[in-house]
Design a protein around this nucleic acid. Structure first.
Length: 628
RNA sequence: GCCAGCGUAGCUCAGUGGUAGAGCAGCUGAUUCGUAAUCAGCAGGUCAAGGGUUCAACCCCCUUCGCUGGCUCCA
């Protein structure tokens, strides 16, 4: 055998072997990277090759484990339910899924059976074997096996591919690019989680398949950690906390997708809205208000009738059609048009905490995150084309600033022209470029979301995550050349001629409802002091101090500290327990000592406490306000 | 809208054909107590709604409404 010399993670190694596994004996290695491509450990070795190992705990390693687990699940499903037709089964950010077409539905007992079968397959330590075939051979192979979905996938890959790769383990063969772990024995920690419907190829016109979700990790310990995380996340669910903390409610009597703010939620919302008004005034926005219903004709002019009708509600007033607003832009455009604008007036920035109503499909409604009526911190900026980049940059700065105040991490995306849209190609291109340039100028990373823009223009979306990692769009910045055109909006330029302004639609928090939902989950209900509906609960040890406790409450209220008084005939431990469950930031304990010294003992969420004067405590609370 | 699961007291949940049960919360009384639950008593439900099967339905069947997890769509 000839000697082969390769480098493994930069170290030179020699072998007489023929495949990568011959030089890598480490059981923690699940795959390798050669020339930038991920390959199996069974891939051939060649002299002088540089090999990078993929550890089972690395991001890529975990993805490979999950992907291999999905194959094992598919094998288990085929063995138990031979009528199930496998379709696709990728790894995901926190697990994997596999979609099957089957007449019968999978029950939770079926999942248990499948999981058992998977364990059997793992204990057999079946090797994953890669095979290559021409597309034609692969098509006839899957056709013979009665797997039409695989045939469709290969056919759609096109003829230029030549060969495709298949992976076989045990009795199961799947079309797959790989790589996979060397054998099923590597899969030591997995769990099936749920069944859900999913359209074939993600298109609602196609057949609905059954998707089995599962997750897998490199070790049982890591799996357990993840399952713990899920359990903890459920405790942070904003719907649960919203009820427990008496922030908001929903009611069957009112209807789905509608939110009722209870006193504490109302206070939280007011605090956020006051913050928003302040921050917008300071940045040169004007606050305006528009009506909720506007004539049908206006929605025709705007293009909503053609592009957004199915999401709108309509009503009739004195025999005339009115549309209930799903967006706030129209009133703002009319304000702009209410008089002749000079180039010197621009930019004009109209801000509205606008309550909008949209007909969302019944299945998508979700607590505060997705409602049928919500309030946007909406603004429309009318500017000259030469001001566009500066305005977009200022908005991005505002987003960064606000997200930092709330301590949120976020991701940005640019969405381009959708199929159903208005406006010229040139305008779309110009607008998309303006958005990209602004982000690039600031050096911010972003993803491109093809065809996901609003019907009137492209947009930058800012997404933040909820307790279990689902992304929700908050801020969005949309560039619009179309509505100014449709409403024949203009300003008088330095040359005395008419010019078309550009319009920016933008929200920072997005929907106040959604934002509060994410806020609740982010802080697990333990809000920062400045937005806590109740900042302190004042509690006396016995009735003897009730009078002093009331004085303390009055004094703090006078100083704008949001307090509640607990003078019930209960033990202090009971009162503290309740205040803790309500996630109140400060507990003020008053006994004979405090009453004698005219002080208060302030206990924090952490359990630490300190005795101080009322003035000292007021200063602490005031200092918690963000500087804006 | 689609697929699946679910809907019992304010909340969390028992109850698989013989007309409903617990804990917490609530109310009343006793207790006046220094850092996550003091004790006792009382009250609370057309079992989501409508229809059907049955001598009898919370339980089985159908329809509708709502909720949950996904898919599609979106702030």
């Amino acid at each position: 055998m000839p000697q082969i010399t390769v480098t493994v993670d930069g170290n030179t190694a020699t072998t007489e072997g023929t495949i990568i596994r011959d030089v890598i004996k480490n059981k923690r290695v699940v795959a390798a990277r050669v020339n930038g491509d991920l390959v199996d450990l069974s891939a051939p070795l060649s002299d002088g090759q540089a090999i990078e190992t993929i550890d089972l705990d690395s991001d890529e390693g975990v993805h490979i484990i999950r992907h291999s687990t999905s194959h094992v699940m598919a094998e288990a499903v085929k063995l138990l339910f031979p009528d199930a037709r496998p379709t696709i089964g990728p790894s995901t950010e926190d697990g994997f899924y596999y979609d099957f077409d089957r007449a019968e539905t999978f029950s939770s007992e079926d999942l248990e059976k499948i999981e058992k079968k998977m364990e059997e397959l793992v204990s057999q330590d079946l090797p994953f074997i890669r095979k290559e075939m021409t597309s034609q051979d692969a098509i006839s192979f899957f056709r013979e096996k009665g797997e039409p979905y695989k045939v469709e996938i290969i056919s759609d890959l096109g003829d230029d591919l030549g060969t495709v790769s298949l992976y076989e383990q045990g009795t199961f063969v799947d079309l797959c690019r790989g790589p996979h772990v060397p054998s099923t024995g590597y899969l030591k920690a997995f769990k099936l989680l749920s069944v859900a419907g999913a359209y074939w190829r993600g298109d609602e016109k196609n057949k609905m398949l059954q998707r089995i979700y599962g997750t897998a990790f490199s070790s049982p310990k890591a799996l357990k950690q993840y399952l713990n995380f899920l359990e903890e996340a459920r405790k942070r669910d904003h719907r649960k906390l919203g009820r427990e903390l008496e922030l908001f409610m929903q009611s069957d009597d009112i209807g789905p997708g509608m939110i009722v703010y209870m006193p504490k939620g109302g206070r939280l919302r007011t605090l956020i809205e006051d913050f928003e008004k302040k921050i917008h005034f300071k940045r040169g926005y004007d606050i305006v208000y528009g009506p909720s219903i506007l004539r049908g004709k206006l929605w025709e002019t705007s293009g909503h009738m053609d592009n957004y009708k199915e999401n709108m509600y309509f009503t009739e007033v004195d025999g005339q059609l009115y549309g209930i607003k799903p967006m706030n832009c129209l009133s703002h455009i009319l304000i702009y048009k209410s008089k002749v604008r000079s180039y010197r007036d621009l930019p004009l920035r109209y801000f509205e905490l606008g309550n909008v109503t949209r007909h969302e499909k019944s299945g998508v409604i979700h607590g505060l995150m997705r409602t049928r009526q919500f309030t946007q911190d909406d603004a429309h900026i009318f500017c000259r084309p030469d001001q566009l980049i500066d305005e977009i940059t200022a908005i991005i700065n505002l987003v960064e600033e606000v997200m930092a105040i709330f301590n949120f991490e976020y991701e940005m995306e640019i969405s381009t022209r959708p199929a159903k849209s208005i406006g010229s190609d040139e305008d779309w291109e110009m607008a998309t470029k303006a958005l990209m340039d602004s982000l690039e100028k600031k050096g911010l990373p972003f993803e491109i979301n093809e065809g996901d823009g609003a019907f009137y223009g492209p947009k930058i979306d800012v997404k933040i995550k909820d307790a279990i990692g689902r992304s929700w769009q908050c801020a969005t910045i949309q560039c619009d050349f179309s509505l100014p055109e449709r409403f024949d909006t203009h300003y008088v330029g330095a040359d005395g001629g008419k010019h078309r302004p550009v319009m920016l639609h933008r929200v920072i928090l997005g929907s106040i409802e959604r934002f509060i939902g994410v806020l609740i989950e982010h802080f697990a209900g333990a809000f920062p002091v400045w937005i806590s509906p109740v900042q302190a609960v004042i509690m006396c040890i016995t009735d003897a101090q009730a009078g002093y406790a009331e004085q303390v409450a009055d004094e703090l209220r006078k100083n704008d500290v949001r307090v509640e008084l607990d003078v019930r005939n209960e033990k202090i431990g009971y009162k503290i327990r309740e205040a803790r469950l309500q996630k109140v930031p400060y507990m003020i304990v008053i006994g004979d000592k405090e009453m004698g010294d005219q002080t208060i003992t302030v206990r924090e969420r952490s359990g630490e406490q300190e005795t101080m004067t009322l003035a000292e405590f007021t200063a602490i609370v005031k200092n918690a306000e963000p500087v804006i």
